[in-house]
Design a binder for these strands. Structure first.
Lengths: 331, 331
DNA sequence: CTGAAAGCGCTTACAG
DNA sequence: CTGAAAGCGCTTACAG
């Protein structure tokens, strides 16, 4: 059996309250402090967070809810958040909501753990958990990340300037001489996808290039969407010369098609994708990349959440917007 | 304030015990059951796992400790485990031990959460947490994954047949006509790396090819190790014609070097790597892959841990070994 | 600075 | 099948 505060109390002859005071950083007579420290050492005492949490209404648990561990963005976000909160003594509970029938149950399991704060990247089918988010957000601070989502309570959200990033990226492709640019995107019910499409259209228009509906592809953030859309695009009478892809998996699908095709060569097309840094270097020529500042975002989100939990800051609904970085290779 | 069992008790006129019995699936008069269910519905009552856990010594938390979220193996393992345990009402706490000075603190934070069971993929510098693992393993079931590690208490471990997989893979390269095969590996203090090196040597010997020390590279499981080692290998007087790489990141480094080199072409070398499925298809020619059955392993580990937690199974130290699958492309 | 006591929300024998 | 009571390990006013 693990030692409890009671054991420390018995061994030192001090009351529970005094031991507790020491544990929580309150003043204790130096002599007693020594006594307690020795007892802790000898009994190998560890605070029981369950008990502490029951009293203080704290679990020291932060939850991060993500739609898909296949997305580099998610992984990097988890990594950054994990780092930040662990420095503050918090642990990270990971909840993957992949659109399955279990999502609701998973979220309820989460809710029963008295989580101190939530970081949520909404899955595609947001409806599943919309109510749950509303409910949770009245219990603990919630920060929405990456994708916006309408909610009863206004929430803090942290996103990237998707429209501007797409606008800049497509402009760069035009600078390089491309006019026939396809976009392979997710559904525009997802806020990020919608914004990227907007930026794409805006860029074309700003340069006097008309938007060709045939060049706009919608599907999942998946390899097969990239693969199939690329195939379809190249079968057009007037096929595109460049591809603007809005996720790593879509980009992979496009490259896969180009590499496996007998008719086309990857090197003959310009491919520009969101979040593709990790595979850019292994291709020749390299991919062009729209980099999201995930690490910065994760750190920001983690620190913000801790402050909200500690009530060092008031919860004020706001949308924090980060800028992307373009990384074009030289040809 | 969230409703408690007390509120339900008041509203229904039943005792705390009866409500608790209902909640835990014990028999309750049908009439009372209805009463309770209505009250739960109206008050939107949710069990407080903190309180329940304090009594039952259960946190409904399973922890997974990983060395690096950059490894596909880790991600897939997390994904599989998460899926499995969430079906059983458990939540997953993620702890990333990346070899930093904070590792020890992170692990202690974990330990204070009364985790019901641990899944641990040891980081490179196992020494950091060796003691902690010994300590933890006397409190809750621990399953070691991927890498073996000596420990005071014998533990359950789940690994892949690394030696055989490497043996088979290198044999296949020899079948394809290669004799000058470099291995770019991690340090052989890591059990997986050590086993893979053994298999590599064994394969060469079994085919009468002498092991050339110049072809054996050791470093981190990192892109830069792959890149630098590949460069070094090709600068040898008698450079290799094939590369056997033991991780995704190493493989990426090798491919990156070959793609960016002016002297060499990626297509002229055979590259065979562990865990490289995710990037195989976007290269031409495709990569040869040693696939670890991560999903199966994760499911197995998750289910095993739940059984151990529920004491449906005795904890018996054992090493469960899974087989890898080779995936060679046709040239 | 310290001690005694109440209580966080739940479960668990024990009577009945 | 149900109720009263004790207790899980901690914190928190409140006296002193």
């Amino acid at each position: 059996m693990a030692a409890t505060i009671k054991d420390i109390s018995k061994r030192t002859g001090l009351s529970l309250g005094t031991v507790s005071n020491y544990l929580n950083g309150y003043k204790v007579k130096e002599k007693n402090q020594k006594l307690i420290e020795d007892a802790i050492e000898e009994l190998d005492y560890k605070v029981n967070n369950l008990a502490r949490g029951l009293r203080t209404n704290r679990s020291y648990l932060v939850a991060i809810v993500v739609p898909d561990l296949g997305l580099d963005f998610c992984i990097d976000m988890i990594s950054a958040v994990s780092n930040t909160i662990s420095k503050n003594g918090y642990n990270l509970v990971l909840c993957v909501l992949n659109g399955s029938e279990y999502d609701k149950v998973k979220f309820e399991n989460l809710a029963s753990q008295n989580i101190d704060g939530y970081i949520i990247m909404p899955p595609d089918e947001t409806c599943h958990i919309k109510d749950s988010i509303d409910e949770i957000s009245s219990m603990a601070p919630v920060i929405m990340v990456d994708r916006e989502m309408e909610s009863e309570n206004d929430l803090i959200s942290v996103t990237v300037n998707n429209e501007k990033a797409a606008f800049d990226a497509v402009n760069k492709l035009i600078d390089m001489g491309h006019e026939k640019i396809a976009i392979i995107n997710s559904y525009n019910t997802i806020s990020t996808a919608n914004m990227r499409l907007k930026g794409y259209k805006k860029a074309l228009k700003s340069r006097g290039i008309s938007v060709n509906k045939d060049y706009i592809f919608e599907g999942k953030f998946s390899e097969s969407n990239g693969y199939d859309s690329c195939k379809e695009a190249l079968e057009l009478e007037d096929p595109p010369t460049a591809f603007f892809t809005t996720s790593l998996s879509i980009t992979k699908g496009v490259v896969k098609y180009l590499q496996s095709s007998e008719k086309y060569r990857y090197a003959d097309f310009e491919v520009l994708g969101f979040d593709t840094e990790s595979i850019s270097d292994i291709l020749s020529p390299k991919l062009n990349v729209v980099n999201q500042p995930v690490e910065d975002m994760g750190k920001f989100v983690g620190e913000k959440l801790i402050k909200l939990i500690n009530e060092e800051e008031e919860y004020e609904p706001n949308n924090y917007i980060f800028d992307c970085e373009l990384n074009f290779h030289d040809r």
